[in-house]
């Protein structure tokens, strides 16, 4: 399929906007696209679809796009799969870029799947690492699979464009530099409103989430046998509440009945990956580590300096948790009150 490989040497970034506001993931993608572009000497182009979005171009150029493909049409006012897919498909087919990147957001995933199907090309979901393979100039798309148990590197060899959605908050945002100029290419969409099968009736912004589950918690404050008694879990609850998190526990704690089962983290309990995991008085049995070692930052407090938990901890504190926890609670509460 040689014709399909006859592409324009450009990396496209879908600029996701809703109500004229650009999703942060688009800036991250522009930053990453710039880095990749230098490996294949490609240009970085933004693709912007919407209604009344022309004024957004300045920021997009400031964030490093060399070019901007834009369709500004009333029909694109709200995101709808059919209209956006049709618009993006038409221009992608016309220019055939080497790579298209989109955020692995609800909209990005919805749109990318639809467009890739029409382009009959490969799409890799939710990438966390992108590289250009030197010999082949192919995009190596790496992503977690199997619930994060493994990583897979995926290639799209014979079809173009190479498409990927990219997990938000993985890459650094492109830093804006004011006054940057780029080339604006205005395109049009052929679809008419009468052909569109969906209509947006309303949009309801979320209210505060009511129930937070352990798996989705951004912060988990977990305790182990080192807490010595059920009563001491009050300290953990206090800290968790201040940090907007949940309380977790190791298996012995559950077995002793100090905490109910839904709080158990580990192989027989829940697998979590919060931004911050506090392990207080947890020795770090393999079964526990299996459930929490992918947390972003792990803080461990244990009086035994040889405890296995320190092998995975970002910050370890060797000492008496009954002295340390109250001080940590105090420090956090002071910090939180100054922030307000």
């Amino acid at each position: 399929m040689a014709d399909k490989l006859d592409t324009l040497n450009e990396i496209w970034v879908f600029i996701e906007q809703a109500r004229q506001e650009i999703n942060m993931s688009s800036w991250e993608l522009l930053g990453e696209a710039r880095r990749l572009a230098s490996d294949i000497k490609a240009k970085v182009a933004g693709v912007l679809l919407g209604s009344g979005v022309e004024s957004l171009q300045e920021e997009i150029f400031n964030r490093g796009a060399d070019k901007l493909y834009m369709i500004d049409d009333e029909i694109l006012k709200d995101y709808r799969t059919q209209t956006y897919a049709s618009g993006l498909f038409e221009i992608a087919k016309k220019y055939m870029p080497e790579i298209i990147l989109m955020g692995a957001t609800v909209t990005g995933r919805d749109l990318a799947s639809a467009v890739a199907t029409h382009l009959q090309t490969g799409l890799t979901a939710d990438c966390t690492q992108l590289e250009i393979e030197a010999e082949t100039r192919l995009l190596k798309q790496t992503r977690p699979a199997w619930g994060g148990n493994v990583m897979a590197t995926i290639l799209c060899k014979d079809h173009r464009p190479q498409m990927a959605t990219v997990r938000p908050r993985v890459f650094e945002e492109a830093i804006p530099s004011n006054g940057s100029k780029g080339e604006l290419i205005k395109e049009t969409i052929s679809m008419k409103e009468a052909d569109v099968k969906t209509k947006i009736i309303d949009y309801l912004p979320s209210e505060q989430e009511d129930v937070v589950e352990l798996e989705n918690a951004e912060v988990i404050v977990a305790g182990g046998r080192g807490l010595a008694s059920q009563r001491n879990f009050d300290m953990l609850s206090q800290l968790a509440e201040m940090l907007g998190g949940e309380v977790g526990a190791s298996r012995p704690v559950i077995e002793m009945g100090w905490m109910p089962f839904p709080h158990q983290v580990g192989q027989t309990g829940k697998t979590v990956r919060p931004k911050l995991y506090f392990a207080a008085g947890i020795s770090g049995a393999v079964q526990h580590l299996a459930g929490m070692q992918h947390s972003n930052v792990i803080v461990a407090i244990n009086k035994d300096k040889d405890a296995a938990i320190f092998n995975v901890a970002t910050y370890g504190i060797v000492g008496d948790l009954f002295e340390l926890l109250p001080e940590i609670i105090k420090a956090v509460s002071e910090y939180k009150s100054t922030k307000k």
Binding site: Q120, T121, G122, L123, T124, K140, P144, A145, G148, N149, V150, M151, A152, T153, I154, L155, C156, K157, D158, H159, H294
Partner: peptide, 11 residues
């Protein structure tokens, strides 16, 4: 299938 798995590895 346009996509191929080049490598699977443990995190």
């Amino acid at each position: 299938s346009p996509t191929t798995v080049r490598k699977i590895f443990a995190p």
